[in-house]
Simulated scan of single mutants.
Amino acid sequence: MSDTPHPSPFKSKRGLGRLFNALRYAVQGMQAALTHEASFRQEFGLAVIMIPTAFWLGRHPYEVLLLIAVVLVVLVVELLNSAIETVADAVSLEPHPLIGRAKDLGSAAVMITLIFAGATWAMVAYLRFWG
């Protein structure tokens, strides 16, 4: 018996085909998030405003990078939270303590990143105008 696990039929092919499939799935994921997730749409709309603003607010390249990075982290965590909620809803729409906990943990992760992003933007703004 071989030590290697049985290959999954769901694994994608190799090479450029894999790269194109990965890109296609990523675009489909963004479209799904923008279509079905109100929180992601709101945060994405803010990101469209905040990312160009970062170039004006940041005085140094590292400040600009930091401001953009925290905005992108919020979007990434929101996508992961939405993925958790989508899988949880696919498993069951009935109330279940573990499903509820999973959704709450995802929401807590989003909240922490939003607080961190807000604090980062406030600190850079303070340094720009009063520091």
Rank of each mutant, 00 (worst) to 15 (best):
L16T: 09
H96T: 15
G29L: 10
S82I: 04
G58P: 02
G29E: 13
F20L: 06
T86N: 08
P97G: 13
L80H: 11
L127M: 11
G45L: 07
A32F: 09
R128V: 13
V74Q: 01
Q31C: 12
E43F: 14
P61T: 15
G118L: 01
L16E: 09
L105P: 04
A122C: 13
P52H: 07
R41Q: 05
R101V: 12
M50V: 10
L98F: 02
D3P: 01
R18K: 14
A108Y: 13
P61Q: 14
V73M: 07
M50L: 11
P97I: 03
E63R: 04
G45S: 03
W130R: 13
F40N: 00
Y62R: 08
R128C: 03
N81L: 12
P95K: 15
R128A: 14
V77Y: 02
G17H: 00
I49F: 06
A90N: 08
I68L: 07
L114T: 06
G29R: 09
L66P: 02
R14S: 11
T113I: 05
V74W: 00
A54Q: 01
T113H: 01
L105R: 10
L105E: 15
N81Q: 15
S2Q: 08
L23G: 10
W130Y: 08
E43N: 09
E85Y: 01
R14V: 11
L114K: 11
S2W: 11
G118N: 04
L57W: 13
A33D: 01
R18P: 14
G45K: 08
K103Q: 04
S39R: 12
L67W: 04
Y25W: 10
A102D: 05
F116C: 12
S8F: 11
Y126T: 07
K103W: 04
L80P: 00
A122G: 06
A32D: 11
Y126H: 05
W130F: 15
W121S: 00
T35H: 08
A109P: 00
A83D: 13
I115G: 08
L75C: 10
S107F: 11
T113P: 04
P95W: 12
P52S: 11
T53A: 07
A88Y: 00
V87Y: 03
E85P: 01
A47I: 02
P97N: 06
V110W: 08
P61H: 15
L114S: 06
T4C: 13
S2L: 14
H36A: 09
Y25H: 10
H96I: 09
I115T: 13
Y126M: 10
A33R: 03
V124D: 00
L98K: 08
I115S: 15
Q42E: 09
P61G: 07
V76N: 04
